[in-house]
Amino acid sequence: MALRAAVLRHIRVPVQTLGLKSNPRAPSGSIRLMSSHDDHLSKEEVADRVLSVVKSFPKVDPSRVTPEVHFQKDLGLDSLDSVEIVMALEEEFKLEIPDKEADKIDSCNLAIEYIHNHPLAS
């Protein structure tokens, strides 16, 4: 094992960067259809979808939902409800939010911020 680690530490495989230029078939524009991780969401879209998820939550009065709203203080939800909303957001954006982050998300603002910054949100 020690030998293996030592060898691995010193070996470097030269990696050639295959730029887009070397590939004549690559499209010139920045749009890559059917590629999964390129569809960065705009902040407005994230905000819209987050708000619609929160509004569709059965215990929430849709008219009171604004981007600044706090789940527990403003909407009268309990901690279980906010976990439920976070799970609904996970489903909507096809994410898996780790526990530490999920605990922090307690308002629409934070949720929008987190999802907007998440690379895999779609």
């Binding site: 279980l80 996970e90 999920a102």
Partner: peptide, 10 residues
């Protein structure tokens, strides 16, 4: 309990 809830949801 929250972990369990998340596991169930997932």
């Amino acid at each position: 309990v929250f972990d369990f809830f998340k596991l169930a949801c997932r």
